[in-house]
Structure formats: structure tokens, C-alpha cells
């Protein structure tokens, strides 16, 4: 029997009808998450990371979007099927980007947490349900959980809202947690606490995580494997160690070079240009127009090629050993 991945995304394509034409946003995005694994999806703003998460959850239907491909959860197709409706909030937890705007201002924290608990334990007596959500808040190190439960979102700080959202995502012990840049809107210390709490909890419950981020420091600290995304395509992926030590794709290198270092070596290198227009993306490698090493053959489709154990890159330079 072949082991089935917890989540497998195959050839996910996503286009959006705009007034200037069809925008091809995601192109052949494939990724896989094993049970208990923490995977990071990294790339600059606007490269389709959040859309990938929302496509997995089936949240993009009816928004003028054309989605194709396969999303398998424990080997079963969930893309465009009613199965995803049963998984949401139960087997797949979601942590949104903006904590303050993601909680309903007219319901108390307890109401909002209970709604998610009731997805699974419909008939749990009130006292037990209350104990459960209180425990969920204690787990994410919320001080004075009773007060927080009785509060409304606007009475809480951004950091507290973020913890509440993490607690909500994890309260049903999902097998997979999709985290969309949690803590980006918060200051760095709170962000670090948030990530630590998430790491601790998912380790405890054995949940897998896909963490979307543009912060490479977070990737190094948090993830087992990393997918590097550029303009709606996966350009490189592999174990964090391997990708960070020997980045093959010029975009991955540029990303790593743009991180400031404490050990000197001058200012970090920025990357000129911006993400292409999705209505007419460049043929072949989408990074080509910004790439210092572009060659004529980059205009052809670049398949992912294995360069090391579990480490693949979509670049003609795959064989070259990176500098440094």
C-alpha cells in the first residue's frame, strides 16, 4: 500500500476574469503536506500565496474565478466537492491574516468560538463547551480567559485577537492548519510569540501546517519544508535546510540576499522590478524579465527538476552550484 499524503495539490490553476482580460494567477501549483509536517509557502506580496490557501478551502467559488486542478485530502478530491464543507473548521483549520478585522464585531469571543466547537460537538452541554473554549484560550497563553471570552473583539488588542483566532483554528484538533501570514499585522515580539504558540500547539496535537509568509526568518524557525512561490508558480521547493543552504533558483537567492544580516557584509541586496501583469504573463519562466541570468531557453516551460533529496527547482540553471 502506498502511503497517502495528508494534502496533495496537483496542477492547481486559477484565473480571474477582469475587465482587461483573463488574469492567469496561479499556474500549475503543486504541493504536498504529510501528516504532522510544517510547510511554509513563501514569496513576495501578490504572488498568490493566500489565494492558494483559499483555493484549497474552496473559498473562491462564485467570485468570477476559474479554478482547475486537483486538491486531495487524505487521497480524496475536495476541490469543488461538498466534502470540503464538512472538512472546514473540523479537519482543516484556518488562521486569517488580519486578526482585528477577522472577528465579528457584534458577537462575543465566546459566541464565535462556540460556533466552531458546535461544528463537531453539536450537543455538548453548555458548561462543558465553556470549559473547552476556556481551555483552548489557556493553551494559547491568553491571560484571564474568562474576561476575554466575555469580551467583544474591539475590546481586545491585536495580539489577543490573533491568539483567539489561533485557538479557534485549533479547538477542533484539525489534521491540517492553513495559516495565512498570522501576526503580520502585529509588532515583531507579538508575532514571535504567536508563532511560538502555534508551533507548540500543532506539535502537541500532531497537526500539519501550511504557513504562508514573506518572512524568511519565520520559515527557518518554523518550517520543515518550504515552497518558494513567484507570480503564481512554484519556482523551488525542498527541505528548509537544503533550500536555505543551496538555493538554486535566482529568485530564491534574491529573496535570501534581501534579508539583512547582523554579521555585517554590507546592506542587503534588493530586487528590482515587480510581479508581472497576470493578464499577459511572460511565457516560460515568469521570473525571466527580472532575472540577471535569463537565457533564450527560459522562454520555454521550466519543469521542476530534482537537485537533491526532495529538493526541486524550476530553472535552467538547476545544475549550477550557487555562489557562496
Amino acid at each position: 500500500m502506498i502511503a497517502v499524503s495528508l494534502l496533495e495539490v496537483k496542477q492547481l490553476n486559477l484565473s480571474l476574469r477582469t475587465h482587461t482580460g483573463l488574469a492567469h494567477i496561479l499556474k500549475d501549483v503543486s504541493l504536498r503536506v504529510e501528516a504532522g509536517e510544517r510547510v511554509a509557502l513563501v514569496g513576495e506580496t501578490g504572488c498568490g500565496k493566500s489565494l492558494t490557501l483559499k483555493a484549497i478551502l474552496g473559498l473562491l467559488e462564485g467570485k468570477g474565478l476559474v479554478v482547475s486542478g486537483k486538491v486531495l485530502f487524505e487521497g480524496e478530491e475536495i476541490l469543488g466537492t461538498p466534502r470540503i464543507l464538512r472538512l472546514r473548521g473540523v479537519q482543516i483549520g484556518f488562521i486569517p491574516q488580519d486578526p482585528a478585522a477577522s472577528l465579528n464585531p457584534t458577537f462575543s469571543i465566546a459566541d464565535q468560538l462556540l460556533a466552531v466547537v458546535r461544528r463537531v460537538r453539536r450537543n455538548l452541554p453548555k458548561e462543558k463547551a465553556w470549559a473547552l473554549i476556556k481551555e483552548a484560550l489557556v493553551e494559547v497563553a491568553v491571560p484571564d480567559p474568562d474576561r476575554v471570552l466575555a469580551s467583544y473583539p474591539f475590546q481586545l488588542s491585536g495580539g489577543l485577537c490573533q491568539r483567539v483566532l489561533i485557538a479557534t483554528a485549533l479547538v477542533n484538533r484539525p489534521k491540517l492548519v492553513l495559516a495565512d501570514e498570522p501576526g503580520t499585522a502585529l509588532d515583531v515580539t507579538v508575532q514571535a510569540q504567536t508563532l511560538r504558540a502555534m508551533r507548540h500547539l500543532t506539535e502537541k496535537s500532531g497537526s500539519s501546517v501550511i504557513l504562508v509568509t514573506h518572512n524568511l526568518g519565520v520559515v527557518r524557525e518554523f518550517a520543515d519544508r518550504v515552497y518558494v512561490m513567484y507570480a503564481g508558480t512554484i519556482v523551488e521547493h525542498g527541505p528548509v535546510k537544503s533550500v536555505f543552504q543551496t538555493p538554486r533558483h535566482p529568485y530564491t537567492r534574491a529573496l535570501l540576499d534581501s534579508v539583512p544580516r547582523l554579521t555585517g557584509g554590507g546592506l542587503p541586496q534588493g530586487l528590482d522590478g515587480h510581479i508581472p501583469d497576470y493578464t499577459s504573463p511572460p511565457k516560460g519562466c515568469r521570473f525571466r524579465p527580472r532575472c540577471a541570468f535569463a537565457r533564450p531557453e527560459c522562454a520555454e516551460e521550466q519543469p521542476l527538476r530534482q537537485v537533491a533529496e526532495g529538493h526541486e527547482v524550476a530553472c535552467v540553471l538547476y545544475a549550477e552550484v550557487p555562489r557562496g
Binding site: G89, V90, F94, P96, A101, S102, A115
Partner: peptide, 13 residues
Amino acid sequence: AKPYIELARAYGL
């Protein structure tokens, strides 16, 4: 159009 409604959908409500 608010994020908390999208989140409610993501929670499977």
C-alpha cells in the same frame, strides 16, 4: 465583503 464573513465560511458555518 468583510473578512469575518469569509472566515465564518472558512470555519464551515
